[in-house]
Protein backbone atom coordinates (compact mmCIF):
# COMPACT_ATOMS: atom_id res chain seq x y z
CA UNK A 1 0.00 0.00 0.00
CA UNK A 2 2.77 2.44 1.00
CA UNK A 3 4.46 1.67 -2.29
CA UNK A 4 1.63 3.44 -4.07
CA UNK A 5 0.72 6.12 -1.51
CA UNK A 6 4.23 7.51 -1.02
CA UNK A 7 4.99 8.13 -4.70
CA UNK A 8 1.51 9.60 -5.20
CA UNK A 9 1.99 11.96 -2.25
CA UNK A 10 5.37 12.98 -3.68
CA UNK A 11 3.79 13.61 -7.06
CA UNK A 12 1.06 15.81 -5.55
CA UNK A 13 3.67 17.77 -3.62
CA UNK A 14 5.73 18.28 -6.78
CA UNK A 15 2.61 19.35 -8.67
CA UNK A 16 1.90 22.04 -6.06
CA UNK A 17 5.41 23.54 -6.33
CA UNK A 18 4.50 26.23 -8.94
CA UNK A 19 2.39 27.90 -6.21
CA UNK A 20 5.54 28.87 -4.30
CA UNK A 21 8.37 28.92 -6.79
CA UNK A 22 9.80 31.94 -8.61
CA UNK A 23 9.95 31.93 -12.40
CA UNK A 24 13.59 30.96 -12.25
CA UNK A 25 12.90 28.13 -9.81
CA UNK A 26 10.06 26.87 -11.95
CA UNK A 27 12.28 26.94 -15.02
CA UNK A 28 14.78 24.78 -13.17
CA UNK A 29 12.01 22.36 -12.21
CA UNK A 30 10.90 22.05 -15.83
CA UNK A 31 14.47 21.24 -16.84
CA UNK A 32 14.90 18.71 -14.04
CA UNK A 33 11.57 17.05 -14.86
CA UNK A 34 12.56 16.90 -18.54
CA UNK A 35 15.85 15.18 -17.82
CA UNK A 36 14.25 12.78 -15.33
CA UNK A 37 11.82 11.83 -18.09
CA UNK A 38 14.53 11.52 -20.75
CA UNK A 39 16.87 9.48 -18.56
CA UNK A 40 14.08 7.18 -17.35
CA UNK A 41 12.77 6.66 -20.87
CA UNK A 42 16.29 5.97 -22.13
CA UNK A 43 16.80 3.42 -19.35
CA UNK A 44 13.49 1.77 -20.19
CA UNK A 45 15.17 0.36 -23.28
CA UNK A 46 18.90 0.62 -22.62
CA UNK A 47 19.06 -0.04 -18.89
CA UNK A 48 18.73 -3.79 -19.10
CA UNK A 49 19.69 -4.50 -22.70
CA UNK A 50 22.99 -2.52 -22.56
CA UNK A 51 22.27 -1.08 -25.99
CA UNK A 52 23.79 2.37 -25.50
CA UNK A 53 21.58 4.59 -27.64
CA UNK A 54 22.69 8.08 -28.64
CA UNK A 55 19.52 8.63 -30.65
CA UNK A 56 17.78 10.34 -27.71
CA UNK A 57 18.06 13.75 -29.30
CA UNK A 58 16.80 12.45 -32.65
CA UNK A 59 13.45 11.67 -31.04
CA UNK A 60 13.50 14.69 -28.76
CA UNK A 61 14.23 16.96 -31.70
CA UNK A 62 11.53 15.41 -33.84
CA UNK A 63 9.04 16.06 -31.05
CA UNK A 64 10.09 19.69 -30.82
CA UNK A 65 10.06 20.11 -34.59
CA UNK A 66 6.62 18.61 -34.97
CA UNK A 67 5.29 21.25 -32.60
CA UNK A 68 7.21 23.98 -34.42
CA UNK A 69 5.74 22.97 -37.75
CA UNK A 70 2.18 22.22 -36.65
CA UNK A 71 1.55 24.58 -33.71
CA UNK A 72 -0.45 27.03 -35.81
CA UNK A 73 -2.23 24.39 -37.86
CA UNK A 74 -3.62 21.87 -35.37
CA UNK A 75 -5.01 22.06 -31.83
CA UNK A 76 -2.34 21.32 -29.21
CA UNK A 77 -3.49 17.85 -28.05
CA UNK A 78 -3.60 16.74 -31.66
CA UNK A 79 -0.08 18.10 -32.23
CA UNK A 80 1.14 16.00 -29.31
CA UNK A 81 -0.51 12.92 -30.76
CA UNK A 82 1.08 13.52 -34.16
CA UNK A 83 4.46 13.96 -32.44
CA UNK A 84 4.03 10.68 -30.58
CA UNK A 85 3.06 8.91 -33.79
CA UNK A 86 6.08 10.36 -35.61
CA UNK A 87 8.37 9.11 -32.83
CA UNK A 88 6.77 5.67 -32.90
CA UNK A 89 7.00 5.47 -36.68
CA UNK A 90 10.67 6.44 -36.76
CA UNK A 91 11.45 4.05 -33.90
CA UNK A 92 9.74 1.22 -35.76
CA UNK A 93 11.72 1.79 -38.92
CA UNK A 94 15.00 2.29 -37.09
CA UNK A 95 14.35 -0.59 -34.74
CA UNK A 96 13.41 -3.07 -37.46
CA UNK A 97 16.56 -2.31 -39.39
CA UNK A 98 19.13 -1.80 -36.65
CA UNK A 99 18.37 -3.71 -33.48
CA UNK A 100 20.45 -6.62 -34.75
CA UNK A 101 23.51 -4.37 -34.70
CA UNK A 102 25.42 -4.81 -31.51
CA UNK A 103 27.71 -2.96 -29.20
CA UNK A 104 29.66 -0.13 -30.69
CA UNK A 105 27.92 -0.44 -34.07
CA UNK A 106 24.59 0.36 -32.49
CA UNK A 107 26.09 3.26 -30.54
CA UNK A 108 27.56 4.78 -33.66
CA UNK A 109 24.47 4.10 -35.73
CA UNK A 110 22.25 5.84 -33.21
CA UNK A 111 24.59 8.82 -33.10
CA UNK A 112 24.79 8.98 -36.89
CA UNK A 113 21.01 8.80 -37.12
CA UNK A 114 20.56 11.93 -34.99
CA UNK A 115 23.16 13.77 -37.08
CA UNK A 116 21.60 12.62 -40.35
CA UNK A 117 18.14 13.82 -39.34
CA UNK A 118 19.57 17.16 -38.28
CA UNK A 119 21.43 17.57 -41.57
CA UNK A 120 18.39 16.61 -43.64
CA UNK A 121 16.04 18.98 -41.81
CA UNK A 122 18.58 21.80 -42.11
CA UNK A 123 18.93 21.17 -45.82
CA UNK A 124 15.16 20.96 -46.29
CA UNK A 125 14.49 24.16 -44.36
CA UNK A 126 17.21 26.10 -46.20
CA UNK A 127 16.48 24.84 -49.70
CA UNK A 128 12.77 24.07 -49.74
CA UNK A 129 10.99 26.25 -47.20
CA UNK A 130 13.68 28.93 -47.26
CA UNK A 131 13.70 29.50 -43.50
CA UNK A 132 16.11 27.93 -41.06
CA UNK A 133 14.31 28.78 -37.85
CA UNK A 134 10.68 28.54 -36.77
CA UNK A 135 8.75 30.17 -33.97
CA UNK A 136 6.44 28.48 -31.51
CA UNK A 137 3.65 30.69 -30.26
CA UNK A 138 1.48 28.71 -27.89
CA UNK A 139 -0.65 29.89 -25.03
CA UNK A 140 1.05 27.61 -22.53
CA UNK A 141 2.48 28.86 -19.25
CA UNK A 142 5.69 27.53 -17.73
CA UNK A 143 3.58 25.91 -15.01
CA UNK A 144 1.53 24.22 -17.73
CA UNK A 145 4.67 22.77 -19.30
CA UNK A 146 5.88 21.70 -15.88
CA UNK A 147 2.68 19.83 -15.11
CA UNK A 148 2.70 18.07 -18.45
CA UNK A 149 6.32 17.05 -18.04
CA UNK A 150 5.70 15.91 -14.47
CA UNK A 151 2.83 13.78 -15.73
CA UNK A 152 4.93 12.29 -18.50
CA UNK A 153 7.78 11.58 -16.07
CA UNK A 154 5.43 9.93 -13.58
CA UNK A 155 3.92 7.88 -16.38
CA UNK A 156 7.38 6.77 -17.49
CA UNK A 157 8.30 5.63 -13.99
CA UNK A 158 4.98 3.83 -13.58
CA UNK A 159 5.43 2.13 -16.95
CA UNK A 160 8.99 1.11 -16.02
CA UNK A 161 7.83 -0.28 -12.68
CA UNK A 162 5.12 -2.27 -14.42
CA UNK A 163 7.54 -3.59 -17.05
CA UNK A 164 10.04 -4.63 -14.35
CA UNK A 165 7.38 -6.90 -12.93
CA UNK A 166 6.15 -8.51 -16.10
CA UNK A 167 7.47 -10.76 -18.85
CA UNK A 168 8.80 -7.91 -20.96
CA UNK A 169 11.10 -6.77 -18.17
CA UNK A 170 12.38 -10.27 -17.52
CA UNK A 171 12.98 -10.78 -21.24
CA UNK A 172 14.94 -7.51 -21.45
CA UNK A 173 17.16 -8.58 -18.56
CA UNK A 174 17.87 -11.93 -20.20
CA UNK A 175 18.71 -10.19 -23.48
CA UNK A 176 21.12 -7.91 -21.62
CA UNK A 177 22.92 -10.93 -20.19
CA UNK A 178 23.06 -13.27 -23.18
CA UNK A 179 21.04 -13.00 -26.38
CA UNK A 180 21.76 -16.59 -27.45
CA UNK A 181 20.38 -18.01 -24.21
CA UNK A 182 17.39 -15.71 -24.51
CA UNK A 183 16.56 -16.95 -28.00
CA UNK A 184 17.06 -20.62 -27.11
CA UNK A 185 14.75 -20.12 -24.14
CA UNK A 186 11.92 -19.04 -26.42
CA UNK A 187 12.27 -15.24 -26.30
CA UNK A 188 11.45 -13.49 -29.57
CA UNK A 189 14.45 -11.14 -29.55
CA UNK A 190 13.35 -8.75 -32.29
CA UNK A 191 9.87 -8.28 -30.88
CA UNK A 192 10.98 -7.69 -27.29
CA UNK A 193 13.65 -5.19 -28.29
CA UNK A 194 11.32 -3.43 -30.70
CA UNK A 195 8.51 -3.02 -28.14
CA UNK A 196 10.86 -1.52 -25.56
CA UNK A 197 12.59 0.69 -28.14
CA UNK A 198 9.32 2.09 -29.47
CA UNK A 199 7.89 2.73 -25.98
CA UNK A 200 11.06 4.55 -25.02
CA UNK A 201 11.13 6.54 -28.26
CA UNK A 202 7.51 7.71 -27.94
CA UNK A 203 8.25 9.11 -24.49
CA UNK A 204 11.43 10.81 -25.70
CA UNK A 205 9.51 12.37 -28.60
CA UNK A 206 6.70 13.57 -26.34
CA UNK A 207 9.24 15.09 -23.95
CA UNK A 208 10.69 17.09 -26.84
CA UNK A 209 7.22 18.18 -27.93
CA UNK A 210 6.10 19.24 -24.46
CA UNK A 211 9.22 21.23 -23.67
CA UNK A 212 9.44 22.91 -27.10
CA UNK A 213 7.36 26.04 -26.28
CA UNK A 214 10.12 26.96 -23.83
CA UNK A 215 12.48 27.51 -26.75
CA UNK A 216 10.07 29.90 -28.57
CA UNK A 217 12.59 29.93 -31.45
CA UNK A 218 13.50 26.51 -32.84
CA UNK A 219 16.17 25.53 -35.34
CA UNK A 220 17.91 22.19 -35.99
CA UNK A 221 21.16 23.04 -34.22
CA UNK A 222 19.19 23.89 -31.05
CA UNK A 223 16.80 20.95 -30.74
CA UNK A 224 19.13 18.33 -32.23
CA UNK A 225 22.04 19.25 -29.97
CA UNK A 226 23.92 15.96 -29.31
CA UNK A 227 24.76 17.07 -25.77
CA UNK A 228 21.18 16.14 -24.82
CA UNK A 229 21.92 12.52 -25.76
CA UNK A 230 25.19 12.45 -23.85
CA UNK A 231 23.68 14.04 -20.73
CA UNK A 232 20.82 11.56 -20.77
CA UNK A 233 23.22 8.61 -20.90
CA UNK A 234 25.46 9.82 -18.09
CA UNK A 235 22.50 10.70 -15.84
CA UNK A 236 20.92 7.28 -16.22
CA UNK A 237 24.23 5.50 -15.69
CA UNK A 238 25.20 7.58 -12.68
CA UNK A 239 22.04 6.65 -10.81
CA UNK A 240 21.91 3.10 -12.13
CA UNK A 241 20.15 2.46 -15.42
CA UNK A 242 18.74 -0.92 -14.42
CA UNK A 243 16.94 0.43 -11.35
CA UNK A 244 13.53 2.06 -11.34
CA UNK A 245 14.62 5.25 -9.57
CA UNK A 246 18.25 5.20 -10.73
CA UNK A 247 17.84 7.53 -13.71
CA UNK A 248 15.86 9.99 -11.57
CA UNK A 249 18.50 9.96 -8.84
CA UNK A 250 21.16 10.64 -11.43
CA UNK A 251 19.21 13.23 -13.43
CA UNK A 252 18.18 15.71 -10.73
CA UNK A 253 21.57 16.44 -9.14
CA UNK A 254 23.44 16.32 -12.44
CA UNK A 255 20.98 18.66 -14.12
CA UNK A 256 21.27 21.19 -11.29
CA UNK A 257 25.04 20.82 -11.28
CA UNK A 258 25.32 21.33 -15.03
CA UNK A 259 23.01 24.36 -14.84
CA UNK A 260 25.23 25.86 -12.19
CA UNK A 261 28.38 25.01 -14.10
CA UNK A 262 27.14 26.45 -17.39
CA UNK A 263 26.17 29.67 -15.59
CA UNK A 264 29.42 30.09 -13.67
CA UNK A 265 32.06 28.13 -15.56
CA UNK A 266 30.78 27.83 -19.13
CA UNK A 267 34.27 26.98 -20.40
CA UNK A 268 35.05 24.09 -18.09
CA UNK A 269 31.64 22.47 -18.57
CA UNK A 270 32.94 19.79 -21.01
CA UNK A 271 35.87 18.98 -18.71
CA UNK A 272 33.44 18.24 -15.95
CA UNK A 273 31.17 16.16 -18.18
CA UNK A 274 34.22 14.16 -19.27
CA UNK A 275 35.36 13.55 -15.73
CA UNK A 276 31.84 12.43 -14.82
CA UNK A 277 31.88 9.77 -17.55
CA UNK A 278 35.31 8.52 -16.52
CA UNK A 279 34.37 8.52 -12.84
CA UNK A 280 31.19 6.55 -13.46
CA UNK A 281 33.04 3.91 -15.47
CA UNK A 282 35.85 3.49 -12.97
CA UNK A 283 34.20 4.18 -9.61
CA UNK A 284 30.50 3.40 -10.00
CA UNK A 285 30.20 0.99 -12.95
CA UNK A 286 26.71 -0.06 -11.86
CA UNK A 287 25.46 3.29 -10.65
CA UNK A 288 25.11 5.02 -7.29
CA UNK A 289 22.35 2.78 -5.95
CA UNK A 290 24.30 -0.42 -6.54
CA UNK A 291 27.45 1.28 -5.23
CA UNK A 292 25.75 2.23 -1.96
CA UNK A 293 24.35 -1.29 -1.62
CA UNK A 294 27.79 -2.84 -2.09
CA UNK A 295 29.27 -0.43 0.45
CA UNK A 296 26.55 -1.27 3.00
CA UNK A 297 27.13 -4.94 2.39
CA UNK A 298 30.86 -4.56 3.02
CA UNK A 299 30.30 -2.53 6.19
CA UNK A 300 27.95 -5.17 7.54
CA UNK A 301 30.47 -7.90 6.79
CA UNK A 302 33.25 -5.90 8.41
CA UNK A 303 31.16 -5.48 11.58
CA UNK A 304 30.22 -9.12 11.94
Amino acid sequence: MMRIILPLAGLVLLALLPLWLSDYGLGLMVGAATYVTLASAWALFSGHTHYVSLATVAFYGIGAYTVAVLNEVLPYPLVLMVAGAMGAGLALIVGLSTLRLKGVYFVIFSFGLAELIRQLITWYEVNVTGTLGRYIFLEITTAGIYWQMLGLGALTLALTAWIHRNRLGLALRVIGDDEAVAAHSGIHLARVKLIAFVLSAVILTLAGAITSPRYVYVEPSIVFNPTVSFLTVIMALLGGANRLCGPMLGAVPLFLLFEWLSAHFPDSYPIFLGLMFIAVVFVLPNGVIAGVETLRHKLREARS
Partner: peptide
Protein backbone atom coordinates in the same frame (compact mmCIF):
# COMPACT_ATOMS: atom_id res chain seq x y z
CA UNK B 1 13.88 -28.32 -28.28
CA UNK B 2 16.09 -27.48 -25.28
CA UNK B 3 19.89 -27.39 -25.30
CA UNK B 4 23.02 -26.81 -23.28
CA UNK B 5 26.14 -25.17 -24.68
CA UNK B 6 29.61 -26.60 -25.16
CA UNK B 7 31.03 -23.51 -23.45
CA UNK B 8 28.64 -23.11 -20.58
CA UNK B 9 26.34 -20.06 -20.86
CA UNK B 10 24.56 -18.76 -17.80
CA UNK B 11 22.90 -15.42 -17.11
CA UNK B 12 25.35 -13.95 -14.57
CA UNK B 13 23.27 -11.02 -13.32
CA UNK B 14 20.16 -13.10 -12.63
CA UNK B 15 19.53 -15.30 -9.61
CA UNK B 16 19.57 -19.07 -9.98
CA UNK B 17 15.82 -19.23 -9.79
CA UNK B 18 15.40 -16.54 -12.44
CA UNK B 19 17.94 -18.30 -14.67
CA UNK B 20 15.91 -21.47 -14.57
CA UNK B 21 12.54 -19.74 -14.78
CA UNK B 22 13.29 -18.20 -18.18
CA UNK B 23 12.39 -21.15 -20.44
CA UNK B 24 9.37 -21.94 -18.25
CA UNK B 25 8.13 -18.38 -18.72
CA UNK B 26 8.97 -17.94 -22.40
CA UNK B 27 8.71 -21.56 -23.48
CA UNK B 28 5.76 -23.33 -25.01
Amino acid sequence: VARTFQLVRILPSLSLRENVMIPAVFGR
